[in-house]
Design a protein around this nucleic acid. Sequence first.
RNA 1: GCCCGGGUGGCGAAAUUGGUAGACGCGCCAGACUCAAAAUCUGGUUCUGGCAACAGAGUGUCGGUUCGACUCCGACCCCGGGCACCA
Length: 822
Amino acid sequence: MSAIYDPHAVEKAVQRTWEEARSFEAGESGPGEKYYCLAMFPYPSGQLHMGHVRCYTLADVINRYHRLKGYNVMQPMGWDAFGLPAENAAIKHGIPPAVWTRDNIDYMRGQMKALGFGIDWSREFATCDPEYYHWEQWFFIKLYEKGLVYRKSSVVNWDPVDQTVLANEQVVDGRGWRSGALVERREMPQWFLKITDYAEELLDWLDRLDGWPESVKTMQRNWIGRSEGVDIDFPVGEGEPPLTVYTTRPDTLLGATYVAVAAEHPLARRAAAQDPKVAAFVDQCIHRKTAEAEIATLEKEGVPTGLTVEHPLTGERLPVWVANFVLMEYGSGAVMSVPAHDQRDWEFARKYGIPIKQVIEPVPDASGALPPCDLEQAAFVPYGRLINSGAFDGLTSAEAFDAIASALEAKGLGRRRTNYRLRDWGVSRQRYWGCPIPMIHCGRCGIVPVPEEDLPVVLPTDVKFEGVRSPLTTMESFYKVSCPRCKGEARRETDTFDTFMESSWYYARFACPDANQPMLDDRADYWTPVDHYVGGIEHAILHLLYARFFHKLMRDHGLIHSDEPFTRLLMLGMVLMGGKKMSKSSGDAANPQSLMDKYGADAVRTAMMFAAPPDQSVEWTEAGVEGQARFLKRLWNLVQDHLAGGPVPALDAAALSSAGRELRRKTHETLKRADDDYGRRLMFNTVVSAVHELTNAVSKFEPAGDADRAAVREALRVAVLVLSPIAPHVTQALWEALGEATLLVEARWPAVDESALEQQQIELVVQVNGKVRGKVTVAADADQEAAQAAALANDNVARFVEGKAVRKVITVPGKLINIVVG
RNA sequence: GCCCGGGUGGCGAAAUUGGUAGACGCGCCAGACUCAAAAUCUGGUUCUGGCAACAGAGUGUCGGUUCGACUCCGACCCCGGGCACCA
């Protein structure tokens, strides 16, 4: 062992040892229960950033802790390789996306190896490998055959200058980011997956995901958005289909004073053809992007169409407005508006002078108070009792829900319905760098799936970008095909899949990356569900919901035999610098490479784990790395100093000095605390603190003799082992130096010696009226009376109690005594 | 706008079930070593008053529950994530 700690030499040597021992290659017959630890695979953007370092270090800590606990751990790694940035690089620098992506993967793999992650690299794949997306195409066709895939028109951001579809991210202030042209909403036929068929199951199973954070489950529940309501038909005219709206408040139906439709709604189109004012408004609505946030924050505006519909109960004619806040893609693209009892409708009605008709009056709430109701100030939203509603007057909102629903059903103008906010998943992208959608359009046969034996449809990688459009659309060799059915001339689909498709099943493929009969085999049932899934909070809804959906699709196809993909979920906070998200200008501290070059991987890993608990956002600074580099050096020197003292005898607890017993207590407290922090609490920052405390105790400790030196040996051994999941290289070197023959990755977590934790004396906090006034030391087995007597005997406590009557004494055994005086 | 989080010293944070607020680290201050600096080591470090013992205040703001509140409840302010084509 070298006298001076050289992190780079140590890390290289230890990584070579792991490689030679194939320490991280996992098999299905390993000893112990299986443990599948997975971090969300990265997009190969160029180089690792601190967010990656955080995510993969956390997963690696979990992986290595479970190895110490005797599990058969598998931690794979791969690349979420399709996506927009590769196309942007191609457009900007003329590098083919495939080349750019492969180069990035090679570089980032090297960085991950240098960080010492315990990854089974034999399972690696990239989603742009045809061997991977082959099975995605195969499965898509199976879903198509089962009726879970359909085609439907949907709205996209259209750049009229570049003649291309833009992602929301590529629309800046309503304009295309490259062309600067005003973006238009345009409808296009697209492929959809029927996730709504699984809405109920996706919702119900959330209740059983005990290992998921409550916040993520709540977000998913709200996203799926189950509600009970009524579809209500408003007749338009003879021989025309009625205007159907969905509402969760049929009790307010008699208060409806207008209906509002989206700009893309057929009624809006009809009105626009006749009225230039409506046409102008509809036209203006075209220039906004598809993002919901955009629409929800708009100033609410609208125009009357001049058309009316009939109120289904009163027969009264209600005006139809076109409004910019109604979404065509959600529900029927129309809403009924009740200004008296909906705040948004109220504001709209006030703005345009539409009547506000109260039909609900307040009733006392649980505390007996009447909720405020002043329709001059705001809508009255709570439930109450019906008024101005004819036959329904006097009913409560709940009663009226049923009565009105029944009345509508009797007239054939309404139906009770459970509704979901969740919309079907549009998987088409008008882009090049993605998995080709395995479909063929034939003039005679219509849609024809690519036959199984012709899969995969390989994405051509030798491409040149001319302009910004997908090269596939002009590549005859790709799109010109003969129809598999009639053999006539046909056109191959040139859209590619949403990249969420690839990330929805990769976790299962890692179990059997070479399976080809079909996409998964028995090994998937051994390893899945993933025991612990680690990733960024930004994926709390979309990615996790799609992956859950896919898991159920694969289950229902007999490919896998569990119900959910991820048993336990760890959602990471963001990595911030100076309180802001990292950016290119964040400098050296944001670059893991320069920090690793300077301080070594162990210091970077330790600093990252120490900075904050995993689920919180973390403030990242180079000073933090420096501090932990200093700590690792101190630990190294401490072991050196100890070894210089020569051999130690076997530990004899009875022979220890009282200071030696104290050190031993600290050792076993550290072991106990760290076990809980690693396994249950997932607080790796306090594990680092605990090891700091233990090493501080060792360096302050002066052994009274060889018996005490055995306590030092034990303390150092525990410090090294407990720290090893976080700083695996330096601890391996120290472990060896301490005379341990087996590799640390093969070691087992030692049992806590409960007898070492026992204390003869304990300190009690004494409060008077809830304020700390003193501390007393009593025997650990002292009874309540003795403890109280000791508390009252304390000088400072006596000062505050003197001359006052003791009303009550509250004792928290072993901790605190509160004397209440008055 | 809607949904989900978060707010504690100069800074990152800790306080696990309502029971000592600030462990651990950074920074800073002082000292030791040094011709000097760096590195290292030792001590101090929430704020106010006090030589000290100690006292008062203090966990975004305001209010409540409790013997006792960073922790529970209500209202509000600020910051972050997501909002279906960034991944």
